[in-house]
């Protein structure tokens, strides 16, 4: 199923109305936001299949709460909060899965315009971060949320956001090869 054209621009979503209208509104929102949510979920999980499952559950919970979200501009934040909290649940992460199925969803081949190693270095650091620290990094540096917004989404203090982000940057500083360090790259230009 290909994404539909973005027919909802800015304040285009209207809330309320009949069940049919409600479902249509939700469906439209879901189609529009699904790719974005999937990308965030993938950065959180590092696995496409798990990310898809995470997004589907998050959207289902959003659907159940659709009438409770009074402000349309709050929808993105609301579903993002569901997404990260669902991901942080030990119930989801604690299991060592016994895989019985043989079907594997192939990861798409990455085409990197400047595959000089930085991408891998960043990704390796992100993948080794503790779960909540990883969520902080994704929300702060991918979703571009403020420290306060990140804290609110994760239900933690701003101070914790700062310390988690700082540790992640320190880890990146330690593990990024010298010749790929931003300062060196700048000097090379």
């Amino acid at each position: 199923m290909e994404p539909r054209a973005n027919t909802l621009t800015g304040t285009g979503v209207t809330m309320g109305g009949s069940q049919t209208t409600r479902d249509a509104e939700f469906s439209e929102y879901m189609v529009m936001r699904q790719p974005s949510l999937l990308r965030t979920a993938y950065l959180l999980t590092g696995d496409r299949q798990t990310a898809e499952d995470l997004v589907q559950t998050s959207l289902a919970k959003l659907y159940l709460s659709w009438d409770k979200v009074q402000k349309r501009e709050s929808l993105d934040g609301y579903v993002r909060r569901i997404l990260v909290n669902e991901h942080n649940s030990l119930w989801r992460r604690g299991w060592k899965k016994r895989e019985h199925a043989t079907g594997v969803i192939p990861e798409r081949q990455h085409t990197d315009a400047y595959d000089d190693g930085r991408r891998d270095a960043v990704w390796e650091v992100v993948q080794t971060l503790p779960r909540r620290a990883r969520a902080v990094v994704v929300l702060r540096y991918y979703e571009q949320l403020s420290e306060a917004e990140t804290a609110d989404a994760l239900g933690i203090s701003v101070g914790t956001v700062k310390s988690q982000a700082s540790r992640a940057l320190a880890a990146l500083r330690e593990r990024t090869p010298d010749h790929l360090h931003p300062r060196h790259l700048e000097e090379d230009r």
């Binding site: 699904q34 965030t40 993938y42 898809e52 589907q56 659907y63 990146l172």
Partner: peptide, 27 residues
Amino acid sequence: LLGAGLRDRAADVDGTWVDFPGVRGRA
């Protein structure tokens, strides 16, 4: 660097895979 790396990695992931009946079923 961190932001660019994450955006670069996430750029690989796109598409929609679940339809409304699927989400409603899980709900």
